[in-house]
């Protein structure tokens, strides 16, 4: 009984949580109150922002490829949804990594506009 309740709870929350990359793009565009510009996202991804690292330092300039953590060398699965179906499907995961990685690269959290641009660009990669 306990078990089936647990499983039910997981199923219900998974159903409510599961999202697609497009859902995230819609959310970020709505928060920014402006459409995404993919090309600007691509430039943001490859540039440094006052610190040593860019997004591409760990995720490579072609994020359909696997990356490597700049400090620990650990392999990182591709970031582009076309190459990795798990990307941009969990709000908790997406929010957590945007917070951490923008802090490390930009020294602050990324704005909704920046997140919209970045994701729009990642979605252009095939």
């Amino acid at each position: 009984m306990r078990h089936s309740l647990c499983i039910l709870a997981i199923l219900v929350s998974a159903g409510a949580m599961a999202q697609t990359p497009r859902d995230f793009l819609t959310r970020f565009e709505k928060e920014a109150a402006a459409p995404a510009v993919a090309e600007r996202g691509g430039r943001f991804f490859d540039a440094t922002h006052g610190n040593d690292w860019s997004c591409s330092t760990c995720h490579t300039t072609r994020p359909t490829q696997p990356g490597r953590h700049a400090k620990t060398d650990k392999t990182i699965a591709p970031l582009a949804p076309a190459a990795n179906a798990e990307r941009f499907t969990s709000p908790a995961k997406v929010d957590k990594w945007f917070r951490r990685n923008c802090n490390d690269v930009v020294g602050r959290e990324c704005s909704a506009q920046e997140k919209a641009d970045l994701l729009a660009w990642l979605l252009t990669l095939k």
Partner: peptide
């Protein structure tokens, strides 16, 4: 964790 050996690992 927010200052974890030079990276943000906050939880």
């Amino acid at each position: 964790l927010p200052r974890h050996f030079g990276v943000d690992a906050s939880l």
